[in-house]
Write a protein that binds this DNA or RNA. Structure first.
Lengths: 224, 224
DNA sequence: AACTGTTCTAAACGAACGTTTGAATGATGT
DNA sequence: ACATCATTCAAACGTTCGTTTAGAACAGTT
């Protein structure tokens, strides 16, 4: 009687709050938070306009729940991986640290990963005040622990330099994960058929090579 | 009679259009395009609300002129540097190619560079349709030429891989140049007192190391 | 002084936004 | 059957947005 997928397509029997979260996540990722109206969201979710206020209080409340629903599970995995790395005998390599930070994102289902990272990169570059304070409190501890592990893996390297290169990596990650639609890219060739595993490997390799390269900075700038 | 700086501060005698461009650039960079109203811009520029329509036609027209005023001169320098590299006898190194792409941005005055790159990174992650088509037409050729030079500097490497890593570099650059305000950063330590030259050198070094690292991808992902 | 064209201004326009309200609806427990 | 609670709904609220309009202020030329 029932098919393999739970309530596959036609009339959506999930709770209204879930449908609102899904629609908001998709639209926020597609258009940005400020550019998405509650009317768009409720129409896409086949819900009433006032249901956002009823279930989430406000648009900001909806945004917070959209974010937390994806970030919190990822952070649990991140902490577990970091714990495993630090309780081992051998000190972890840079690749292993970066992998612990990046892999939990890539192990999400494809569409979840895509929408979530696109939304994150938008927020990272458009400081919605309500979202930023929330993000700060839930991913700040993870960032601090990851940076601490990197510091221990790079003894003698100034902390500002490590931090700067970690910043480079964050930018590379957000850009790689979010800017894949052709309308968005300024140059028309885009390797869209990249698998998640391969993308993760490329990103870890790229970032590890850049972070490890910590020679004499002053003499390296080519004087043209 | 006249001081060294042309009309230094008090009552602003520059043309209204210039004041509007400056105010719009600052506010767009601070808050994003969609979140900035024409009333904020005209108030900051001490101009009338309708003056935007008079001088630029619409808000999109204002945005296009804000962008073109900064990008077009940078692109002229980029083309000149690329020409110099390609008419030399020795083939250019990866560092030289990246430097030709990045240096013209860093040689802008400090506040121009900061505001412009913050605005660019916002647009790069919030596809305003009008701005994107304009950006595509004015920086598409530059991107194509830079990618062509990278391809020639990395013979035998698949083009998709080069493109992917160039994408990483763009993300690193945008993130490094734009995310320096403490309210914005999820982790509170930020090396704000970095000089432009040092930041450029770090960025070129980081990206060149990552791009050059083109070994066997499949075996590099640490299996945790 | 009179005319012409450019620039600026105050006021209003319609549309879209997030939010709130109060009643209708449906399920649950007694 | 009634009462209770959570949920949904249509409608309206006040605000803000980008844009438009018609006229005032000012310059330069004849």
């Amino acid at each position: 009687m029932n098919s393999a997928t739970p309530t596959p397509s036609a009339s959506d029997h999930r709770a209204t709050a879930d449908r609102l979260l899904d629609a908001a996540e998709q639209l926020f990722a597609d258009q940005g938070v400020a550019a998405t109206s509650l009317r768009q969201i409720t129409t896409a979710a086949s819900a009433n306009l006032a249901s956002v206020g009823y279930h989430f209080g406000s648009k900001d409340g909806l945004l917070r729940e959209v974010l937390g629903r994806r970030i919190l599970p990822v952070n649990v995995i991140r902490l577990r991986l970091l714990d495993e790395l630090e309780t081992r005998s051998a000190p972890p390599s840079i690749e292993e640290i970066l992998d612990a930070f990046l892999r939990p994102i890539f192990e999400q289902p494809e569409n979840v990963r895509t929408n979530f990272t696109r939304l994150m990169s938008r927020l990272h570059h458009s400081p919605d005040p309500a979202a930023m304070s929330y993000l700060q409190e839930i991913i700040g501890p993870i960032a601090t622990r990851t940076l601490g592990a990197l510091k221990r893996a790079l003894p003698g390297v100034p902390v500002e330099r490590i931090f700067l290169r970690a910043h480079f990596m964050i930018g590379a990650m957000l850009n790689a994960l979010s800017a894949w639609d052709p309308h968005h890219c300024v140059v028309d060739m885009a390797p869209r058929n990249e698998s998640g595993d391969q993308l993760l490997a490329e990103l870890v390799q790229f970032s590890a090579a850049g972070i490890r390269q910590l020679g004499e900075i002053e003499t390296l700038a080519p004087k043209r």
